[in-house]
């Protein structure tokens, strides 16, 4: 009887020690929930959600300080994914934070640019190259379309244009189910 108790206690101590060690050794750095939310956010870094970037917004959601429907670039799909992840109810995009738009990129009218560098300072992802008093230009593949560079430009030479669909980025449409024909067939 006593030996059985001792054996059980011994096993408990050993397992406990192993668990304790494992929790220190394999500690997850950072907050996994924040990273999961951040992975869903589109990384446009536009600040329309009223936070200074996607990560801060993710942190606010994780803390329960922000709603999940504040990110216009992420759109409805993003909200749905967030709702799935957090086990919350889906809600439409909050109008005060903006509207969902097709993806855009900024273009600088290079003839008008005076090289004031204000746009480079505004761009959250360093997508604009140029130096003081030199023409600036946007590296289109890096531009997230956040529009933050548009207001600071003193000569208003930055325009936002929609990214057109190309043969390479084209997506096959979801097959449409022809209900009409089925009805006709059923009638026949």
């Amino acid at each position: 009887m006593l030996s059985a108790l001792l054996v059980m206690a011994g096993i408990a101590v050993v397992l406990g020690a192993m668990l304790g060690f494992a929790s220190i050794r394999f500690k997850v750095k950072g907050d996994p929930l924040v990273d999961k939310i951040d992975a869903i956010l589109p990384q446009t870094q536009c600040g329309q959600c009223s936070y200074p970037g996607c990560k801060p917004y993710a942190q606010a959601i994780a803390k329960g300080e922000a709603e999940i429907n504040q990110c216009p670039p992420g759109g409805e799909e993003g909200i749905r994914k967030l709702a799935d992840l957090l086990g919350k109810e889906f809600k439409p995009l909050s109008a005060e934070h903006g509207v969902e738009k097709p993806k855009q990129v900024a273009i600088i009218d290079e003839a008008v640019c005076i090289g004031c560098t204000l746009c480079t300072q505004a761009c959250p992802v360093d997508a604009i190259v140029g130096a003081a008093k030199q023409m600036h230009t946007i590296v289109a593949p890096l531009c997230t379309g956040c529009e933050l560079c548009v207001p600071p430009c003193p000569v208003d030479c930055i325009a936002m244009v929609a990214v057109p669909e190309t043969v390479e980025t084209w997506k096959w449409r979801y097959p449409v189910i022809r209900l009409k024909e089925r009805k006709r067939e059923q009638a026949a």
């Binding site: 996607c54 959250p124 997230t144 980025t169 084209w170 997506k171």
Partner: peptide
């Protein structure tokens, strides 16, 4: 449809990851 959707998602994810890093 599924294949091209997955390719698009992958592309978008790569772009978003790059944007996150740069930010």
């Amino acid at each position: 449809f599924a294949k091209s959707s997955m390719r698009t998602l992958e592309r978008e994810k790569a772009v978003a990851d790059a944007a996150r890093q740069r930010f």
